[in-house]
Design a protein around this nucleic acid. Structure first.
Length: 271
DNA sequence: ATGGCGTTATTTTAACGA
């Protein structure tokens, strides 16, 4: 089975390109992030015509995550247990009515529990969104540790845009990120905590080379200059990690007119 | 120090993103 993840930066602007990717690569299951639409705006027909079932959650023009599959799609969950909302107060419990955002969707496809994840950006270290990002990652770690505790043989793939740069060598110039989000010790610790919970980040297992990027900014010719970042990852349960035979980052998808700023990450799973 | 580019929306500027 071929499983991929891709932050498409608007599924409506990119639907034809996504279908072309599916057909070119023979991807069976695709987790999509940043659909940037409500459920009623999702281009279901485009994907159904190509032979895929769709599960999507989106509340506005922001965020939005989906899983599309041609090997079945069951037990859809539009959030994980304990997923926090964004509280705009200056303290974590300041806001009595946090806003729930469409950033996680789980679905079982071909026997694999796939979670399409769009981790909050954080914006700035002194912004409430930064605290939200850390709380969100911690809540996901707690939830996912529970899945493994319930079933150590579970086939789970947590895929998507993690908005964390785990290593200094995962970015074109770490000096440009002094004081910025994505590289702070708390963010990196929150990311690596999934390893502590028993998961394995299989993209680096298969693609260990430094400066192997999944994102390039639209601005200032970042892609031609290869000024990129590695922020799209797959934390796999042990049983699933053992099935991964290859991982590829599809750099071709950053080329040409109408590209997303992220490219797909593709995982091949043994039967 | 700023904004650079792309997308969206109760659009004609603002919000958001990494």
């Amino acid at each position: 089975m071929r499983l991929a993840t891709w932050n498409v930066n608007s599924v409506r602007a990119r639907a034809d390109r996504v279908v072309a990717f599916l057909e070119r690569t023979g991807t069976d299951v695709l987790a999509i992030q940043e659909t940037k639409c409500r459920d009623d705006q999702f281009p279901y027909l485009t994907f159904e015509a190509a032979g895929y079932d769709v599960a999507h959650v989106g509340f506005s023009q922001w965020n939005g995550v989906a899983v599309i599959s041609r090997v079945g799609i069951d037990d859809v969950e539009a959030k994980f247990a304990g997923q926090p909302g964004f509280a705009k107060g200056t303290a974590a419990d300041d806001d009595p009515d946090p806003v729930h955002e469409a950033r996680a969707l789980g679905a079982t496809c071909g026997g694999v529990r796939v979670w399409s994840l769009y981790v909050p950006n954080g914006r700035a270290v002194d912004d409430p969104h930064y605290r939200y990002k850390l709380a969100w990652l911690e809540a996901l770690r707690t939830a996912s540790a529970g899945w493994l505790a319930d079933d150590p043989t579970a086939q789970v793939a947590m895929v998507g845009d993690w908005n964390v740069i785990p290593l200094d060598t995962d970015v074109y110039d770490i000096a440009d990120f002094a004081g910025a989000t994505h590289v702070t010790p708390p963010e990196r610790e929150a990311f690596e905590a999934f390893g502590g919970a028993g998961f394995r980040e299989v993209s680096r297992e298969h693609l260990p080379a430094e400066r192997t990027y999944t994102y390039w900014d639209y601005k200032q010719l970042a892609f031609p200059k290869n000024k990129g970042m590695r922020i799209d990852f797959t934390w796999a349960s042990p049983a699933l990690a053992d099935r991964v035979t290859a991982v590829a980052i599809d750099r071709e998808e950053r080329k040409g007119k109408g590209a997303s700023d992220h490219v797909p990450v593709i995982l091949d799973l043994a039967d």
